[in-house]
């Protein structure tokens, strides 16, 4: 089996705000074309960690590389698709106007723009709601529109911060199917989540707690090594809880 290519590498990354340590000496490699899940309770530092990769934040010490280029880099920003934890949408505009605006920021225009908008909206099953104002959308619909926006420019790496919060199980399944489809096309996907069953769907997982990465491996590896049957139990073992 050929060695998978490294796509993201995080080297000794620490981040602290005044005396509060949010991230402590994180080392992590993520390979091309995998779905990597960052699992941890809220406040563990997941968002801070993925922000290092989007260029929105810089570490106090250490470096992070995307495609062997040190972040933050304006050139690389176009190969990253980012969906933040909060829906960053313009509520007074329609879904289509939001998509048009964000796609022109990435230089998409004319026919290509129209085609991409149709494709991503199909993927998140919102094709019928293009003309509606975002303020009339439900929470789940806003979440899906945010995802569609992150997909617009066909990024090589997709960074999704809690993408399925507030989305019902049926839709969550279809979104995960979309992730697998993107993965087949070679997209690397980094997802943060605090839902354990969702973590099981990732190729590999990073367990994160109190700003430290406590374990990395496939869901099966993690269960096997900790001698447990569920990821939740594995998380407790790695977190230092007594069995």
């Amino acid at each position: 089996m050929e060695q998978p290519k490294t796509c993201v590498s995080i080297r000794h990354v620490s981040k602290s705000y005044k005396k509060h340590h949010v991230l402590q000496d994180i080392n992590l490699d993520i390979f091309e074309g995998e779905i990597f899940g960052l699992l941890g309770p809220s406040g563990a530092g997941k968002t801070t960690l993925v922000k290092q990769l989007t260029g929105l934040d810089t570490p106090t010490s250490g470096e992070s590389y995307v495609f062997q280029t040190k972040m933050p880099s304006l050139k690389l920003i176009t190969s990253i698709g980012y969906m933040a934890q909060s829906d960053a949408l313009y509520e007074d505009l329609s879904a289509k106007e939001n998509l048009q605006f964000f796609s022109s920021l990435y230089g998409l225009k004319g026919e290509k723009q129209t085609r991409r908008i149709a494709e991503v909206m199909e993927l998140v099953q919102l094709s019928g709601d293009l003309k509606r104002l975002v303020s009339n959308f439900s929470g789940g619909m806003k979440r899906r529109l945010s995802l569609a926006i992150a997909l617009l420019h066909e990024p090589k790496i997709l960074i999704l911060d809690e993408p399925t919060v507030g989305i019902d199980p049926v839709l969550r399944k279809s979104i995960w199917e979309a992730f697998y489809k993107l993965k087949q096309n070679g997209t690397t996907i980094i997802v943060t989540t605090h839902v354990m069953d969702e973590a099981g769907k990732c190729d590999r997982l990073g367990l994160i707690r109190d700003g430290g990465l406590i374990a990395v491996g496939t869901p099966d590896e993690l269960k096997e090594m900790s001698n447990t049957t569920t990821i939740e139990e594995a998380f407790l073992v790695y977190g230092g809880a007594k069995k």
């Binding site: 989007t54 304006l74 920003i77 980012y82 933040a84 509520e91 920021l105």
Partner: peptide, 14 residues
């Protein structure tokens, strides 16, 4: 406050 500024800065917009 709505996070769109952060979203803009995650795009190639200078």
């Amino acid at each position: 406050t709505t996070g769109t500024l952060e979203r803009l800065l995650a795009s190639p917009l200078r």
